[in-house]
Design a protein around this nucleic acid. Structure first.
Lengths: 213, 213
DNA sequence: CCGGTAAGTAACCACCCAGTTACCTGGGGA
DNA sequence: TCCCCAGGTAACTGGGTGGTTACTTACCGG
């Protein structure tokens, strides 16, 4: 975590202005992407000014990286709350799947940020100093549930956890990321609660249906 | 289709320069997004010049829309080739699923374009005059296969075709769209042929496993 | 040979925008 | 009191950046 050590350079301190700039940048970046965002606009939204933005972050691109790392950290944090080890495997799996879709649809900014970063071929993320910290606790939880389910005979065995993890992410992420083009094509709103609940039910069906022994 | 009527305005004619500009724009837009792309760069890549670009397309944003429509059309065109009605349901389904992943991974520009357009909340697509043409023939094929499979007793019934269609798209699209961040996090290359084949096998497993009666 | 038109060249305009700088303010600690 | 420093204001710089225009070239059909 960022220390508030008064001897640390401003760029590493946790101050109110810094946080407001981060919040504003998250919104702006998610809406318009890195190239489409304007530094002046971010500063204005934050009720701050460019001078402080540059004092804290040094450049637009550094700010992007910090925002991106923060978005990952926020998701990891919520994932860590997910206590799934004590539930029966099928229920645990449903919870993992549902959590993922719900988090994703509650945080379309995260989706937008990820998409953008992939457009950049993860150039900024690769530069991050704590890439290992990006590794999700949810993948570990998933592995545990898969093993337990197979042992108890309620899931099929031999499932590749990483592939399934990517699938669970993708089933939710794609829906949220592409809701605008999809709903244009299908002439159906996709971000109502009813639509999201239907999607949740479907994704659960797919994953649990697949895992049947 | 675009006519080559010599009385039509330049902006609606199919000329060599126009096509080269479109090709160049596809590459540039996919690499850098709409805001990140430079009109001068597109013209240069096309071996053309800004003057002709503006004569044909009027603005950067109009060019974006034409490129996007073209990308959809190209995918629809290949989907139309997919003859799946004569195959047994399970095989037909495998083919639909595999086609989707393979097309997606052969055309990451399409993925990049879609992601960008969703960042813009489909603002350009909505303005398109032939949105209905975006509707995929693959969805119809999928419906047919689902019904046939259920009738023959090899698939479960009551499957929502649109949800499954979105899932099939998503299982491939997410993998391709996010391959850079995913491979950074997992320290594993994801765009080798072996990795793609593994993904294909997994997606097939998931979909067919889910569809078991 | 002539008129029409696709295509090219290069300069130009009016902003835009990341990043910098000089100077100011207000509060808290020694 | 005085210094330190987070934060603020506003102007400026320099390299873009979308879009336009005047002028030229080359080809093709009548």
């Amino acid at each position: 975590m960022v220390a508030s050590n008064p001897r640390a350079p401003l760029s590493a301190r946790a101050t109110a202005t810094r946080q407001r700039i981060l919040d504003a940048a998250l919104v702006e970046f998610a809406e318009k992407g890195l190239a489409g965002s304007r530094v002046d606009e971010i500063a204005a939204r934050a009720g701050a000014n460019k001078r402080m933005l540059y004092a804290h972050f040094g450049s637009k691109e550094e700010l992007w990286l910090v925002v991106l790392e923060g978005a990952y950290a926020a998701k990891r944090e919520e994932e860590r709350q997910l206590d799934v080890a004590s539930l029966p495997p099928a229920e645990a799996m449903t919870r993992l799947v549902a959590f993922n879709l719900r988090y994703t649809s509650r945080h379309p900014e995260f989706v937008a940020l990820l998409n953008q970063e992939n457009l950049h071929r993860a150039a900024y993320l690769r530069r991050s100093e704590d890439v290992p910290a990006l590794y999700s606790p949810m993948l570990e939880a998933l592995k545990g549930v898969l093993e337990r389910g197979a042992r108890e005979g309620v899931f099929r065995g031999g499932v590749d956890a990483m592939q399934l993890y990517i699938s669970i992410l993708g089933l939710g992420h794609f829906y949220v990321a592409n809701r605008h083009t999809l709903s244009t094509i299908f002439h159906t709103p996709l971000d109502t609660e009813a639509a999201i609940a239907a999607r949740e039910a479907h994704i659960s069906d797919v994953v649990l249906g697949f895992l049947r022994p």
